[in-house]
Simulated assay, not measured.
Amino acid sequence: MVRIPAFEVEQWMDKYETTPGVLNISETCASSITLEQLVQFNSQKDAAPLFDLSARMTYGTILGSEELRQNIADTYRDQDEPEAASPVSPEDVIVTQGAISANYLALYSLVGPGDHVVCVFPTYQQLYSVPESLGAEVSLWKLRAEDSYVPDVSQLKTLIKSNTKMLIINNPNNPTGATIPLPVLSQIVSVAKAHDLILFSDEVYRPLFHSSPAPPSVLSLYPKSLATSSLSKAWALAGIRVGWVATRDGALRARLASARDYTTISVSQVDDGVARYALSAPVRPSLLARNVGLARANLELLARFVADHARTCDWVRPTAGTTALVRFRHRESGRPVDDVAFCEDVLRRTRVMLVPASKCFGNGTEFRGCVRVGYVSETEVLREALESLGAYVADNLA
């Protein structure tokens, strides 16, 4: 039997996010929009409808509609080289049921017993637990607060082994909100090239760069790379369950497509249609502008909270994405809180939902006292949650 460890962050979310009256600032998606709202972002007044109701409900195009794959490819041009051709073609894109399926497909297709994988840490648990469950050896490439959670390439070089096959990064990072800047990305690519490694980048929070220059996707930098993403985080459309994996390497793409046959025939035609509408040229810029604007405004609220409670919390300010890692400590002793007990008590007393980092992103001791805050919720939700959390901290962290 395959050993599958508990997926701690997902189990935490499942357990608590339906708490009555919850003020959820643990959610990692930009505040979700309705389909009615989505239509309002279209700059073409005579635009085609959101979905063709006369379309027959067949499986559709197996790897995703041509239009959706083209629109996905175009997203890689917007920030990398807006005036140039996209580094990605529609043929490079395979559509999946969310980024979680894209990540699993990439790992299931390309990693197995006898392989060694290096993965940044902390990150989404799937990225290191799945390779382990498939029989691979995994080395964690640990990010440090003193480096602003930017990976240290000199440390990476010490982790490479003769059987290293894949290097996994997450840019922007979950849970820290850190960005890997282009100079560091270039060094990572150099290491991957030198050892002929597959470079796998979870880019699900791209292109939500709100506080730093936008680095290019790895797809622009290294042919033997693959990137995953979805409509959930930066595009505020988690409910349509559309993601993708893209690679310019034909051999990797063929292996991904072949393995996908065992798990997915196609995504829903309805989901495909909504996704291609959302990522179309008349909609995409204004939808992203809404989410970037929300992230910037809400980040200032969170920054003010951290500054106002500097005796009991600190952070490395995030530069992209939707999440921040905030460390809480007792006022007098400076001792980190028990973040699991802290999150449970905060939820019970204030209805504010947070994610404990030592449980969901560490091993029980790392990131002690840290909680993940998802701050790109509705602004009023965040404001109310931070007011309640501030009162709790003042009364309970002596």
Rank of each mutant, 00 (worst) to 15 (best):
G364L: 04
Y59A: 14
P122E: 05
Q70H: 11
S229M: 02
L156P: 02
S86T: 10
A257V: 10
A307S: 13
E81T: 14
V153K: 05
L389T: 02
S133P: 06
P318Q: 03
N174L: 15
L159C: 08
R284H: 13
L294T: 11
F121L: 04
E81F: 07
A73E: 02
E81G: 08
F41A: 12
V242W: 01
I100T: 14
T164C: 03
Q269Y: 00
A295N: 03
V393I: 11
R329T: 12
T179Q: 02
T19W: 12
Y149T: 04
Y149E: 09
T96N: 00
N173M: 09
G273M: 10
W315P: 07
R304V: 13
H309Y: 14
P336C: 04
F367Q: 00
E378Y: 13
P181M: 04
G321K: 02
R329Q: 13
L53V: 13
W244Q: 00
R304T: 15
L382V: 12
P49N: 07
S101E: 15
N363T: 09
S280T: 01
Y124H: 14
Q126Y: 09
L301M: 12
L143Y: 06
Y124D: 12
A297C: 08
W244R: 02
V189S: 07
Q79H: 13
R255K: 15
W12E: 01
P207C: 08
H309N: 13
P282E: 01
E384Y: 03
C119Y: 00
V150K: 05
E81C: 15
N170K: 08
E17V: 14
G98A: 10
A234Y: 00
G112D: 08
L185E: 01
A84T: 11
P181V: 01
R304S: 15
N174G: 04
V337Q: 08
T247S: 13
G60H: 00
L185G: 01
T96L: 02
S258W: 02
V346I: 10
K161T: 14
V118K: 01
N396Y: 11
W141Y: 07
G177Y: 00
V393F: 05
S101R: 10
D74Q: 14
R241M: 08
F328G: 06
T28M: 08
Y59D: 11
G21M: 06
L110S: 07
A251S: 15
I62C: 06
H195Q: 03
E384T: 15
P356S: 09
V242D: 01
R383C: 02
R248N: 14
K359R: 15
Y222R: 02
R3V: 14
N171W: 06
H330Y: 15
E366Q: 14
A275R: 02
L208T: 05
A289N: 09
G321T: 04
L287C: 04
A246P: 08
I72F: 05
N71C: 07
Q37G: 09
P282N: 01
A307R: 13
H330I: 11
V316A: 11
N173F: 09
I72Q: 01
H309G: 04
L386I: 08
A254G: 03
F328D: 05
R383W: 10
L208S: 03
R311M: 13
V316F: 03
V352Y: 09
I72P: 01
L325M: 14
F361K: 06
E300C: 11
L182K: 08
L252F: 05
V373C: 07
P20W: 09
L105C: 06
